[in-house]
Computed example of a mutant assay.
Amino acid sequence: MRAEGVRMKVADIERELDHARNQGPVRDIAIPPCPELLVALRKEVDKADPDPSEIARIASSDVAMAASLLRTVNSPLYARARAADTVAQAVSMLGVGPTVGILTSFLTRNAIRSNSPLLEHFWETSTRRALAMGFIARQLYGVDADVAHTCGLFCHVGIPIMMQGVKGYAGTLAEALARQDRSFTETENAAHKTDHAVVGAIVAKTWCLPPIIVAAVRLHHDFTALTDTRFPEEARTLVAMGLVAESLVARHEGVEVQREWEQHGDACLAHIRVSAGEVDAWVDALHPVFESVAVA
C-alpha cells in the first residue's frame, strides 16, 4: 500500500508538470530540446552494461565537448599521476558515470544559455553544486553519486530559461535574491504564477532524465517533502542533500547565510544523518574541488 502511495505521489508531480506545460503559465516558455548527443548518452547509459568505447565515441563527436572532457580530467580536480591524451583514456581513467556527468554538464550549459549579468557565474555555481552533491552521496549509504550529481546540475536550470522566456523575470530574480521575508519560489510565484523548480523539472522531464531526478528538482525548495512518506525516500534524500550542497557552495563563494538554510538546514542534516561538524570538514575537503571549477 505504501509503494502504491509513492507511485501516486510521483504521478501527481508528472501530472502537475504536464498541466503547467500544456495549459498553465509555463505553456509559453520555450523549453530547449534535449541535445542529440545527450539523448545518445542517456540511451547508452540506460543499458544494463554501458559500453565505455561508445561513450568515448559520443564524446569525440564534438570537438569542444572532447576538449572540455580532457581539460577536466587533467585538471587538479582529479589529480591524476599522468595526463589523459585521448578521450578514450579519459573515459578509462574516470569511468562511465563521472564521464557522463562531465559531458552532461557541457551539453546542458551549451543548450541553456545564461547571458544576464545576474547569471554571470551561474554555471560555475551549478557545477559546484553538482560536485558537492556527488561528494555528499559518496559519504552516505545507498545514494547514487551520478544521480546526485545530475540532480545538482539541474536544480536551477529553470532560472536561465525563465530569464530568457518570461517578461520581467530579471527584476523578479533580483528581488528574490534580496528578500528575506519570503522564499525565492514564493517571490517567483507572486510575479509569474510559476517558479524555477517547476520549469527545471519540466526540462528534466522533457530531456528524459530519471523520474527520481524530475521529482527532486520539482521539490528542491519544498522542505515539507522531507517528512512526506508518499514521496520516494531517494527523492527526499536528494532534496535534503541539495540544501546542504547549496550551503557548502555558498560558504565557498562567500555568500551570506541563506534563509532556507537557517530555517531548514537542521532538518536536512537530520534527514541524511549528518552533523554540523561533518559539514565543516566537508568545507575543507571540497575547497580544492570547488577551486578547480572553471566553466568556459
Rank of each mutant, 00 (worst) to 15 (best):
Phe122Asn: 01
Ala190Leu: 14
Pro32His: 07
Asn115Lys: 14
Val147Cys: 00
Leu269Gln: 04
Asp62Lys: 07
His121Cys: 10
Arg2Asn: 04
Ala81Leu: 14
Gly242Phe: 06
Ala81Tyr: 14
Leu238Arg: 01
Glu16Val: 02
Asp222Cys: 08
Glu188Asp: 15
Ile136Tyr: 06
His192Ala: 04
Leu219Trp: 00
Ala245Tyr: 08
His287Thr: 13
Asp144His: 07
Thr127Phe: 14
Ala178Val: 05
Glu188Phe: 04
Asp28Thr: 11
Leu70Val: 09
Trp282Ser: 04
Ala83Gly: 07
Ala130Glu: 06
Gly165Arg: 02
Pro33Ser: 06
Thr72Tyr: 12
Leu107Asn: 00
Arg259Phe: 06
Val295Tyr: 12
Ile272Val: 11
Tyr141Ala: 15
Ile202Lys: 02
His196Glu: 12
Leu103Gly: 12
Asp195Tyr: 02
Val157Tyr: 11
Leu140Phe: 07
Pro76Phe: 07
Met93Ile: 14
Ala83Trp: 12
Pro117Val: 04
Pro50Tyr: 09
Pro76Trp: 09
His264Pro: 10
Thr172Cys: 13
Ala204Met: 01
Val214His: 02
Thr104Gly: 12
Asp12Arg: 10
Met162Gln: 05
Val100Met: 06
Ser53Arg: 03
Met162Glu: 07
Gly97Val: 10
Thr194Pro: 09
Thr229Phe: 15
Ile212Thr: 15
Leu118Tyr: 14
Ala285Lys: 10
Glu256Asp: 14
Ala267Glu: 11
Glu253Val: 06
Leu226Ser: 08
His149Pro: 07
Ala270Pro: 09
Val96Gln: 08
Glu44Lys: 00
His287Leu: 13
Ala170Tyr: 08
Phe106Ser: 01
Ser75Asn: 03
Val283His: 09
Pro98His: 00
Trp123Glu: 07
Lys43Glu: 15
Leu248Lys: 01
Gly171Pro: 06
Leu209Asp: 13
Ala20Gln: 11
Arg113Gln: 09
Gln23Ala: 08
Leu107Val: 05
Phe223Glu: 07
Ala197Ile: 08
Arg42Val: 13
Asp85Met: 09
Asp144Glu: 10
Gly265Asn: 03
Thr194Val: 04
Thr237Lys: 05
Pro210Thr: 05
Val249Asn: 06
Val274Thr: 11
Leu153Phe: 08
Ile212Leu: 11
Thr127Trp: 09
Arg129Ile: 12
